[in-house]
């Protein structure tokens, strides 16, 4: 079981690292969106500190959603996905491996670059740590939920726009608690614990429920 998981994970990572631009575009998208906001709303430090958590989270949502389209698309085009469906291994496990690979390539870079973005918004050091931790817990949930949408819209015309319509409403809980944790940490760091507990609960729930749902969606889309 584990070896199959690792095999798919390894394959996806290798393939993605041969085409690094895909990874970089997601990251650059995130950076650009976050950098545009101060130009739009003005650069007062107080205002930015207030907006920062929400803006960074919304940008992370959009960036991870943009990358979702590629989650199954390449494998769908070259027929690999069909082979995966026919393989004797449980499809949810294979899907989970692909999701993990996707998160490592799109979610993790966002977590790592978040401190730079936070500095643009004049956030304190504690808030930056909280933001990194919240993103580290929250972005996997985005990938997990998004995989269901990506599987449902597989191979459709205008799939990207449709995907955002389907998936963004489902991202709300992660956005609320992810941005909330950072906002609260500015006031009192001790109060952030419930936020992390909830984000952690979402992650565990997502790990259990999302891969079978995405696998079912893939079967529907591929038959």
């Amino acid at each position: 079981m584990l070896s199959v998981f690792l095999c798919v994970l390894n394959r996806d990572l290798t393939l993605a690292l041969r085409r690094r631009t895909d990874v970089l575009t997601t990251l650059l998208f995130f950076v650009i969106v976050v950098s545009l906001f101060p130009l739009g709303v003005g650069s007062e430090r107080e205002l930015l500190r207030l907006l920062g958590p929400g803006v960074v989270w919304v940008a992370a949502l959009l960036a991870s959603m943009l990358a979702l389209e590629r989650l199954f698309a390449a494998d769908y085009d070259d027929g690999t996905l069909e082979q995966l469906l026919l393989a004797g291994q449980p499809l949810s496990l294979l899907v989970l491996a692909k999701i993990v690979a996707h998160w490592l390539l799109t979610g993790l870079p966002l977590v790592i670059i978040a401190p730079l973005m936070a500095m643009q918004y004049a956030l304190e050091a504690t808030a930056i740590w909280v933001m990194m931790a919240a993103l580290a817990l929250g972005t996997p949930v985005l990938s997990l939920l998004g995989a269901i949408g990506a599987a449902l819209t597989l191979g459709l015309r205008g799939g990207g726009i449709l995907l955002s319509l389907l998936i963004l409403p489902l991202y709300i809980p992660v956005l609320v608690y992810g941005a909330g944790a950072v906002s609260v940490s500015v006031i009192e760091i001790a109060d952030t614990q419930p936020y992390f507990a909830l984000l952690g609960a979402f992650l565990l729930g997502g790990l259990v429920l999302a891969p079978p749902a995405a696998a079912a969606a893939l079967r529907i889309s591929m038959e």
């Binding site: 449902l152 489902l170 809980p173 609320v176 608690y177 909330g180 909830l198 979402f202 749902a213 529907i220």
Partner: peptide, 30 residues
């Protein structure tokens, strides 16, 4: 495919609705 995909989406939405409602209802769990 349309029937089944949309049906799956409806069920995912139903599972998510209470969580979404809770998160909007309690943006600050404290």
């Amino acid at each position: 495919r349309a029937d089944r995909a949309a049906a799956l989406l409806a069920i995912v939405g139903l599972v998510m609705l209470p969580i979404i409602y809770w998160s909007i209802n309690c943006p600050d769990p404290n």
